[in-house]
Amino acid sequence: MRKIDLIIVHCSATPEGKDFTTADIDRWHRQRGFASIGYHFVIYRDGSVHHGRPLAQVGAHCQGHNAHSIGICYIGGLTTDGKHPKDTRTEEQKSALVALLRKLRVQFPNAKIRGHRDFAAKACPSFDATAEYAII
C-alpha cells in the first residue's frame, strides 16, 4: 500500500442540485488525458459513497500531492447557474463525508485532512475543509 499522509477533499465543480456520477467524472477526466477518474471516492447528493480509483493506485486530483494522498470528491460546489463557488453539500453528503473521513483516519491515522484549495488557487471544495475536519 502507498504511504498516505493527506486526505484531500474536492467538489466536482458542478451546479447545485444537479446529479452526476463517477462515470461522468471518469469521462471528464479521460477527456483531459487522465487514465481514469482521478478521485478515490465520490459522494453523491444522496450521501451514497462510490469508489473511483483503487486506494492502492495513485490518484490524479491534486498536482504535486497525488503520490501520497487520497482524493474525495462531493458532487456540487457551484451555484445553480454554475458561475460561483458555493458549499452545496446536502446533509446526506455532510454525514457521509464525515463517516468516510473517520473510516480513512482509522486506516491512515497520520493523514491530515485538507481541501484542494489548500494546495491550488481554487475555491474547491467551496468550504474550509481543513477547519471543518480539524477534530476528525
Rank of each mutant, 00 (worst) to 15 (best):
I70M: 03
M1T: 14
H65I: 04
C73Y: 03
I135E: 00
T22K: 12
K112Y: 01
Q63L: 03
F20S: 10
A13N: 14
A129E: 02
H29V: 08
E92H: 12
K112P: 07
D46N: 13
G71S: 05
A120C: 03
D87I: 15
R102P: 08
V106Q: 05
I37H: 07
A131D: 07
P125G: 02
P54G: 06
I75P: 01
I7D: 13
H51E: 05
A123I: 01
K94Y: 11
G38C: 11
H40D: 11
I7H: 12
Y39R: 14
E132M: 03
A99V: 03
K18Q: 13
Y74A: 03
I43A: 11
V106S: 02
G71D: 01
G59C: 00
S48F: 09
G71W: 03
L100F: 14
D81V: 14
V9F: 11
A134I: 05
I8H: 13
F41M: 13
K122A: 05
T79R: 10
C11S: 15
A99R: 14
H61C: 02
S36A: 11
P109D: 04
F41G: 12
F119K: 01
T22S: 12
K3D: 15
D19C: 09
N110H: 04
R114L: 04
D87C: 13
L100G: 12
I113V: 04
